[in-house]
Structures are given as structure tokens and as C-alpha cells.
Design a protein around this nucleic acid. Structure first.
Lengths: 117, 117
DNA sequence: GGTTGACCTGGAGCACGCTCCAGGTGAAAT
DNA sequence: ATTTCACCTGGAGCGTGCTCCAGGTCAACC
């Protein structure tokens, strides 16, 4: 079990963000201690790792929410989850290709500027 | 000379965005015809290409604005422009590396899901 | 047993980057 | 000539994803 402060360290999300994710349903209702304070389970932390990965690769919250619902709905949604992740994977691939292409342009620009010196 | 509609096609920016960029000073005052309508020069279109590249690689507007000011300030700012672009290039590199790393995670996740079928 | 500090909730506010709107002027097509 | 269309300006509004705040409850350490 992780206190909120520990969960922040483990996941890299701010406490506000963790609360926000719970509020909108990205994270299922987190356990509370007697005083009503959150205690994040190992599973919560793992799931947050997945969320982090999807988020950092540019998946919109709305799509993550669909994914979260699939996960909650049970094993019969595994094919849908695969489809969703494969589609996302394609978009990540595109992002990488796009960045690499633009980076070339930047390199050329830098070279050109260097040639002026 | 390009009409607004042509500039939209050439640059991929919406007309509203072109106006916005001019308003905030990313784009220097664009020429107008007698009726006050914009006529984008070849140079404008080229500069917008540069802006597009920077924007698509995640440079914030504020930084693009600094770059625009350096360009306007004249040739003596070339070293500063190089520094700015090199710093940005590092950030693009990081983005690519980060995406590639996360993509591995996604691939593993997909493989795992496939193993369940 | 008092102070400090972590945490709670509901809801407002914010930063960014556009995007849209009202009200109007010229220009282009029939 | 008239309808239609592209475009103008200034300013308001919006979607996304948090982030902050007020007002309060426990807990933990001296």
C-alpha cells in the first residue's frame, strides 16, 4: 500500500492529477484508510504506469477512458484492447516518423546558419 | 503573392491561425491589397514552413516568438539562433527516444494480450 | 496537548493554442 | 445589378488537461 505522497513518487503524476484521474474514472475508486485518506495498491500503481505510457505517447484522456472501461469490462474485451493499442501504436509510429522528418529540416537549418559564420 | 485561401493550402495552417500568428507577431505584418486583404509573399510562405516545423516538433509559441525576434533582429543573431535550434533539437531527440521507449511498452502489452487469446 | 503537516472534498481557475462570431467591406460570378 | 463569396477586425469563447483554493479532518511528532 502506498500513501498519496508515495504514489506521487512512484508514478510521476502530481497528487492533484491522481485525484483527477480517480474523479473522471481513469482510476477506479482508490482504497481509503479509516481517516478517508487514499492508500494506493500495487495494482493501482501498475495501472498508473500504463496510463503514464499512454498519456506520454499522446493518447487523449477520452481514449484512455475507453481503454479503462474495456479493462474493467473483463477478459472478453481483450481483442478490443488489442485493436485500440494497435491503432495507438500506429499513431505513435507516425509521431516518431514526423518528428524525425522535421528534425532533418532543423538540422539543415542549423547547417545553413553555421555556413553563415 | 498568395491569397489567404492559397496560403492556407500552402502552409496547412487555418486562416484563423495565420491571422493569429500575425496578430501575436510570429508573422510580420503581411502585405494587403487595396481592399485590405492579405497577400502573402513567397517569403511569408517559407517562414510559415519554418514555423510549422517548429510547432509540429512541440516548440511553444513563446519560444517561436523569441526565434522570430532573433530573425528580425538581423544577422548578428545567427549564433543565438543556432543555440536556440540546437537546444530544440535536443528536445526533439528526447521526444523521439521517449516515444520509442514507450512504444516498446505498448508492444509488450499487445503481445501479452495476444498471448491470452 | 498543541502545533505542524499530510490529506480530504467540491468546485473554481488557468495556460495554451487556437477557433468562432458579429458586423462590415470589396470583389467575382451570373 | 444583385447575389454570393472571400475576406476584414476586434474580441469573446472553447477544449484539453490539469492546478489551485477554501475550508476542514486526522495524524504524528515533540
Amino acid at each position: 500500500m502506498y500513501t498519496p505522497a508515495e504514489a506521487v513518487v512512484e508514478t510521476g503524476f502530481s497528487l492533484d492529477t491522481l485525484r483527477y484521474y480517480e474523479k473522471i474514472g481513469l482510476l477506479e475508486r482508490v482504497d481509503r484508510n479509516a481517516a478517508g485518506q487514499r492508500r494506493f495498491s500495487e495494482e493501482d500503481i501498475g495501472w498508473l504506469g500504463t496510463l503514464r505510457c499512454l498519456r506520454e505517447t499522446g493518447m487523449p484522456i477520452a481514449t484512455m477512458l475507453r481503454f479503462a472501461e474495456l479493462v474493467r469490462a473483463g477478459d472478453h474485451t481483450v481483442p478490443d484492447r488489442i485493436k485500440l493499442l494497435e491503432e495507438h501504436d500506429r499513431q505513435v509510429q507516425e509521431q516518431i516518423a514526423n518528428l524525425a522528418e522535421r528534425q532533418d529540416y532543423i538540422h539543415n537549418k542549423i547547417s545553413y546558419y553555421r555556413s553563415l559564420l
